[in-house]
Write a protein that binds this DNA or RNA. Structure first.
Length: 536
DNA sequence: ATCTTGTTTC
């Protein structure tokens, strides 16, 4: 791979848009080092304080993940000019520093700087990604107040945000209110429909835009592919691929990643791996999104061989440094039983996120290393890392697997009282399992009865398992009957129930159940492990 | 200077 020499192209370093490319080919650390040298030069020559130069430095530092340095460069500006703020807010929003982006806007507001149309799209993007509906709506109000609603950039961001919130109708309203929709606005609306399982509506919009003389581009086609692929409509995807080719657009990495993503989402993991091979055969190279999409397919199939190949590729191309890729790798090794590999990846991750921690806690929990899981959970709390519902699913799983009954109960309350997370089905299932394993069958049943939603098969299954282990026939019958209702197609439940009835001498019920099983042509699948252990 | 396509943990 050719390394771009940075010093001769220092001017490019300061040019927004080239950072990503430079980082990909030079590595973040090397780029940052060169950037700092250049910054020093700019300071000594006295031009670092020029507004335009300082704005570029701000963008550069955010792109390298150094928000604090960016802020310093910004504060070095002689006067707080609006374009500097636009760069700061935009650079933060583009690089995943959403909270920082909105926080910075707040500061700017306090200082009485005027709202600028150029920063609206970035603020909407940050609200969208934080799922902060309140903030997003507030920005929308400001848009109306300042009469920015005829700005196509603003409108496409609004459409995108409302679609992400699941409010397609609101997105459509904003779309309709715009006098002249351009390509990006259409694309935003099309992808809005596609991401909300309304791909046919998205397809209609493509016809509308063609009638207006706007030609669909690769983004339009990819949005459609993503929509239909996610819905599992493989024929429609092939159809779109044909149409786009006739239209002069070749499928690119994004198209293929969307196809692979849809297949993984619809449990077609083998097909997803095939799709990846096809993509390679077309001469396209996977990027971080492709890798992150594909790794879960290897994980589900427990295909460590492919997983390791992808890992090697990621190391060679530097994609291993990507946050999403890293957590997908960690999860893959963890789920496939390679705990030490998972631990190494965890240790090697400089910027650990909630997902990183969650994956590692799940790994410990699922391998019976409860103490390690608890240790990590405590670290997370001590570091002030954001804990989410999955953090608690993971730690409660660890508690139930490790017999840490008291701790589990304590954490179940902590989750609700301190972190304001409403327990979901999986949390209740963990608690039923936890109590059940400890022999507290009545308490486990009480937990199920206290659930504000309909208990699912995992809750009843956990209770049934516990009843079997601790010999409580009455509760077992209740649990087994609920299970049979919830999951009549799973013959395992029926068979378990029938053996329970048989033991209790209720043969009439056994006959009834066996008839039901036969009628539904249910068969019992032999238990098997999918872990591919033929890998060294 | 700002916008629209694909992305990890249940």
């Amino acid at each position: 791979m050719n390394k771009i020499s940075i010093v001769p192209c220092s001017f490019r370093l300061l040019s927004v848009g080239y950072y990503a490319e430079l980082i990909e080919t030079n590595g973040r650390d090397r780029l940052l080092c060169q950037g700092r040298k250049l910054h020093a030069h700019l300071v000594t020559s006295g031009i670092a304080r020029l507004t335009r130069i300082a704005a570029k430095l701000v963008g550069f530092y955010v792109e390298c993940g150094k928000v604090t340095d960016a802020k310093k460069a910004f504060d070095g500006m002689p006067k707080r000019d609006i374009s500097g703020c636009v760069v700061m807010i935009g650079a933060c929003a583009r690089n995943g520093y959403y909270q920082e982006s909105l926080g910075f806007f707040g500061e700017m507001n306090k200082e009485g700087l005027k709202l600028d149309a150029f920063m609206i799209p970035s603020l909407l993007k940050a609200s969208r990604n934080l799922l902060d509906q309140e903030f997003g709506r507030m920005i929308h109000c400001m848009v109306l107040k300042c009469s920015f609603e005829s700005d196509a950039f603003v409108v496409s961001s609004l459409i995108d945000m409302y679609s992400k919130f699941g409010e397609v109708e609101n997105a459509r309203k904003v779309f309709n209110d715009l006098a002249e929709q351009d390509l990006a606005v259409f694309n935003a609306m099309i992808s809005g429909y596609a991401n909300n399982s309304q791909s046919d509506e998205a397809l209609n919009l493509v016809q509308d835009m063609k009638l207006l003389g706007i030609k669909p581009d690769i983004i339009t086609w990819n949005a459609l592919i993503a929509g239909f692929s996610h819905m599992g409509n493989e024929e429609k995807v092939s159809e779109i691929l044909e149409i786009m080719c006739l239209d002069g657009h070749k499928p690119d990495v994004v198209s293929w990643t969307s196809i692979i993503s849809g297949l993984v989402h619809n449990f077609q993991n083998e097909k997803a791996l095939d799709g990846f091979k096809q993509m390679l055969a077309h001469g396209l190279y996977p990027n971080s999104a492709t890798i992150t999409t594909l790794l879960p397919a290897c994980t589900t199939l427990a295909n460590v061989k492919h997983g390791k190949e992808i890992h090697s590729y990621s190391v060679v191309t530097g994609l291993e440094d990507h946050g999403f890729v890293r957590s997908a790798l960690l999860d893959m090794y963890g789920k496939c039983g390679f705990i030490s590999e998972a631990m190494i990846l965890f240790r090697m991750t400089p910027k650990k996120t909630t997902v990183t921690f969650n994956s590692m806690i799940f790994c410990y929990a699922n391998h019976g290393l409860s103490d390690k899981a608890v240790e990590l959970f405590n670290q997370m709390e001590a570091k002030g890392e954001k804990l989410d519902h999955l953090t608690f699913t993971a730690i409660l799983t660890a508690c139930s697997h490790g017999g840490l009954t008291d701790l589990g109960q304590k954490l179940f309350l902590l989750m609700q009282n301190k972190y304001r997370i409403d327990p979901r089905l999986e949390h209740y299932a963990c608690m039923v399992d936890l109590l059940g394993r400890a022999g507290k069958l009545v308490e486990a049943y009480e937990m199920i009865k206290a659930m504000p939603m309909e208990p699912d098969l995992f809750a009843w299954g956990a209770l049934l398992g516990a009843c079997r282990n601790h010999g409580n026939m009455e509760l077992a019958k209740i649990a087994a009957e609920r299970l049979a209702e919830l999951e009549p197609e799973n013959s395992g439940n029926g068979l378990l129930l029938s053996s329970l009835y048989a033991n209790a001498g209720s043969w009439e019920s056994v006959v009834r159940l066996k008839k039901m099983i036969k009628k539904k042509k249910l068969r019992r699948f032999p238990g098997s492990s999918w872990v591919d252990d033929k890998v060294s």
